[in-house]
Design a protein around this nucleic acid. Structure first.
Length: 484
RNA sequence: GCUCCCUUCGUCUAGUGGCCUAGGACGUCGCCCUCUCAAGGCGAAAACACGAGUUCGAAACUCGUAGGGAGCGCCA
């Protein structure tokens, strides 16, 4: 009996989860924003709820269409799809105006007529006196005739008591109303302010869990007072700790990548980036590697910890390599192709990229490095590393290369594969009475012009039979002729 | 200045009063493996900010101190 009631009841609660990611379009999607978006997305997915994307573009000065596009591109590249939106706040001005006017009519907000200069002066006086700058409430209860000056609408914040909430990550937070002042909700230029628009939107969109950076904790009590004035049910709040740069300072350009799209350019897999950032502030025991499905299954914003973390590029690189090594090569290949093209190489002018992934994924940490190392199979190299030639092309290199050439030429075209090549090279080594290494090193120089490459069978395989033989001939041609 | 938040190895973290002479991972170092470079295996160094208190017992609870962060806009 209990079980039959429990099931539907519980899912009804889960269904009510609605989260939103609400960036302002004043730049690209940065790494902190990406993690906030991820956590919002995961919380909604985990609870079978909805994830809403909202663009907070009420600041006409700083908002740009290019930024909107950049944010959308970032979200799409990461694979964080939204169920509703994008909703633009600029499309909702009438609604904000209506709510602001209702608040005034209800005596919960009022018009104030100070100029910016007067407010600046007030602030300066308060700071000089060493007290917290706050609006003094001059117009709060005035009934004077309104002066002939631009007006703003201010919210009548309660003057006594305190605001408290149970933050899902920070725990209980309390702030006295005496710390707060009457915030402006409607500007003199007839636009809503952030703190007001957010609340109206979150109420209208029935957001159940407000998940955002902890730079917003100080805004929360004012917003809670607004919810109450509106008679709206309170959502749960979850304030995420910040992400700093490796040196503990705010993450900035000088740390390397700030925009998530830069991570694509630098050769990271989107799901690897997600795996790395999900572990910044969240964990599940000792587990380090999470597929997207696992994250959805295991994540809860209530498990996020409370302290700021630093971005560690070394660990990101490790996570990225992990996914390059453990995913299906076919899933990695398109990303490698993107990098090859970005380097000006034609993926069709060489081996199947999936085969390149198999050969190189143990040897690099990013797709960028992989593409650079793959260059030798998509274009001819121009010169040899002379040190490599000096070290490996002396001694019996000529005999070894000739034996390798003969052995490789004997591999039927249809059987051209790493195992067949390995067998051929071992036969060649045996024929000249040397270990495989004596054949492999000069051959490696012949194949790549350098002394470093993947295992010799793959290195030769990826070159393809005609190109492999040609490259052996090319090296042989520059070696001194055999004595006698 | 005021308010709020935070503090376990270099870094990300486990830890919810005894299982902790504090575990894992990245990074670092050493050894093994080996056709180069990697990857992999094994191992090492490395942390509870400090001080009081609560308790039979504190990394965990409370209070201070120090340090760090955020906010205090007609920005979001």
């Amino acid at each position: 009996m209990t079980a039959t009631i429990q099931g539907p009841f519980r899912s009804a609660i889960a269904m009510s989860c609605r989260t939103r990611f609400a960036p302002s379009p004043t730049g690209f999607l940065h790494i902190g924003g990406a993690r906030t978006a991820l956590f919002c997305w995961l919380e909604a997915r985990h609870r079978g709820g909805a994830f809403v994307l909202r663009i907070e573009d009420t600041d006409r000065e700083r908002s740009t269409q290019a930024s909107v596009d950049a944010i959308l591109d970032g979200m799409n590249w990461l694979g964080l799809g939204w169920d509703e939106g994008p909703v633009f706040q600029t499309a909702r001005f009438d609604r904000y105006r209506q709510v602001a006017e209702e608040l005034v009519a209800a005596g919960k907000a009022y018009c104030a007529y100070e100029t910016r200069e007067e407010l600046d002066a007030m602030r300066a006086r308060q700071e000089a006196a060493g007290i917290k700058p706050r609006y003094d409430g001059y117009w709060r209860d005035r009934t004077d005739p309104p002066p002939d000056r631009p007006r703003v609408i201010r919210f009548k914040n309660p003057t006594t008591g305190k605001v408290a909430w149970e933050d899902r990550v920070k725990g209980r937070i309390e702030i006295s109303n005496e710390e707060l002042d009457d915030l402006i909700i409607w500007r003199s230029d007839e636009h809503p302010t952030y703190n007001f628009a957010v609340v109206v939107d979150d109420v209208d969109m029935r957001i159940s869990d407000v998940i955002r950076g902890d730079d917003h904790v100080n805004n929360t009590p004012r917003q809670i007072n607004l919810y109450e004035a509106l008679g709206a049910p309170l959502p749960a709040f979850a304030h995420l700790p910040m992400i700093h740069g490796p040196d503990g300072a705010k993450l900035s350009k000088r740390h390397g990548a700030v925009s998530v799209m830069q991570y694509r350019d630098d050769g990271y897999l989107p799901w690897a980036l997600l795996n790395y950032i999900v572990r910044l502030g969240w964990s599940h025991g000792d587990q380090e590697i999470f597929s997207i499905d696992e994250m959805v299954r295991l994540f809860s914003v209530g498990d996020v910890n409370q302290s700021a973390s630093r971005f560690d590029f070394d660990k990101l690189r490790w996570v990225n390599q992990h996914w390059m090594r453990h995913d299906d090569p076919a899933r990695i290949a398109p990303h490698l192709e993107w990098q090859l093209r970005d380097l000006g190489l034609d993926p069709a002018a060489g081996p199947n990229p999936a085969d390149v992934v198999v050969a190189l994924r143990d040897r690099c940490h990013t797709l960028r490095e992989m593409a650079e190392k793959a260059r030798v199979w998509y274009a001819e190299f121009e010169s040899y590393d002379e040190q490599a030639v000096a070290k490996h092309a002396g001694g019996r290199a000529r005999e070894c290369l000739e034996a390798a050439h003969a052995a490789l030429a004997g591999v039927p075209r249809a059987e051209w594969s790493p195992p067949a090549i390995d067998a051929a090279l071992r036969r060649a080594a045996e024929a000249v009475g040397e270990g495989l290494g004596k054949v492999a090193q000069p051959l490696r120089v012949a194949m790549t012009g350098t002394a470093v490459s993947p295992s010799i069978d793959h290195t030769v395989f990826l070159a393809g039979q005609p190109r492999a033989l040609a490259r052996i001939e090319r090296l042989l041609a520059r070696l001194p002729s055999p004595a006698g």
